[in-house]
């Protein structure tokens, strides 16, 4: 049985993010319905090229978020460098310049926790490769709200610390390879 489609997908990644997202995002069809909201740890002082890069490779729309960006289907939203990205309500994204969380701004925890608050059980959170523990608490918040939680198989991750921390906080998370995650998402449509 295909599970019902969540209202939004949130993804967090750090070291190795580019390669991991390169497996997932380009695999999604142009009419993929849920918005995909992505936090990748990036240096604060540089212009991010992530959105540009994926725009050229994806069939869905790809944009770097500006404050109060409306959420649309079939679109991937990247956090800009040096701002936290939050889901403001079911239709809007917001940015803040609060203190870094676990040395990170944007922070995956901040995105995931806001998504848990706004969407409750109607969100899927995916924690990918990374070398620190950002995202683990957020993943637990999504699980607590009844949302779906997926962790990249640490064995297949470029950096295992982040998915391992995710599993520590969320032992019942689904563990999938990158291809498995792509397939999982495509099943929603």
């Amino acid at each position: 049985m295909t599970p019902s489609r969540p209202e939004a997908i949130v993804i967090g990644a750090s070291a190795g993010a580019l390669e991991a997202l390169s497996v997932i995002l380009p695999s999604l069809p142009a009419d993929f319905r849920a918005p995909i909201i992505v936090v990748v740890h990036i240096p604060p002082d540089k212009k991010s090229v992530l959105a540009e890069l994926f725009r050229a490779r994806c069939r869905i729309q790809v944009i770097e978020v500006e404050d109060k960006e409306p959420l649309k289907p079939a679109t991937a939203y990247f956090a800009p460098p040096d701002y936290h990205l939050l889901v403001e309500d079911t239709g809007t994204l917001g940015l803040t310049y609060e203190e870094p969380v676990l040395f990170s701004r944007p922070s995956i925890d901040v995105l995931f926790e806001s998504a848990a608050d706004v969407y409750g059980s109607e969100v899927a959170a995916i924690l990918l490769t990374g070398a620190n523990e950002d995202g683990a608490r957020g993943l637990a918040a999504v699980a607590k709200a009844g949302g779906r939680v997926i962790v990249q198989d640490p064995e297949t991750a470029f950096a295992a610390a982040m998915p391992e921390a995710g599993l520590k906080f969320c032992p019942n998370a689904e563990v999938l390879s990158l291809d498995g995650i792509s397939e999982y998402l495509r099943r929603f449509d």
Binding site: L86, V87, E88, D89, G94, T96, E98, V110, E113, S114, D117, V118
Partner: peptide, 9 residues
Amino acid sequence: YAMGSIKRR
């Protein structure tokens, strides 16, 4: 104020 951020703080 934007709710997500107020809630966090």
